[in-house]
């Protein structure tokens, strides 16, 4: 695969690319999800709330 015979090497090659792509997808999903919430926070910031403990 990919001109590399040893599966231990092409697996590493593919995993490197996939893990980096996985990072992009994970980051992008969080980026999108956060945008809606940030708009909500602008509204919320007008009403002060005490720190809530677990």
């Amino acid at each position: 695969m990919l001109g590399i015979d040893d599966p231990q090497i092409w697996l590493a090659y593919v995993l490197c690319v996939l893990s980096a792509l996985g990072c992009v997808v994970y980051g992008a999903l969080n980026w999108k999800e956060g945008e809606e919430e940030e708009e909500e926070q602008v509204v919320k910031s007008n009403t002060s709330r005490p720190a809530v403990q677990e």
């Binding site: 893990s19 980096a20 990072c23 992009v24 994970y26 980051g27 969080n30 980026w31 919430e37």
Partner: peptide, 24 residues
Amino acid sequence: DRSLKRAVLVGGPFILMMAGVAYV
């Protein structure tokens, strides 16, 4: 926390392009 999760988007490809490219 979300900033950290968002940072993954840049961090992963960055390391791939540094170390990965250097080794290949």
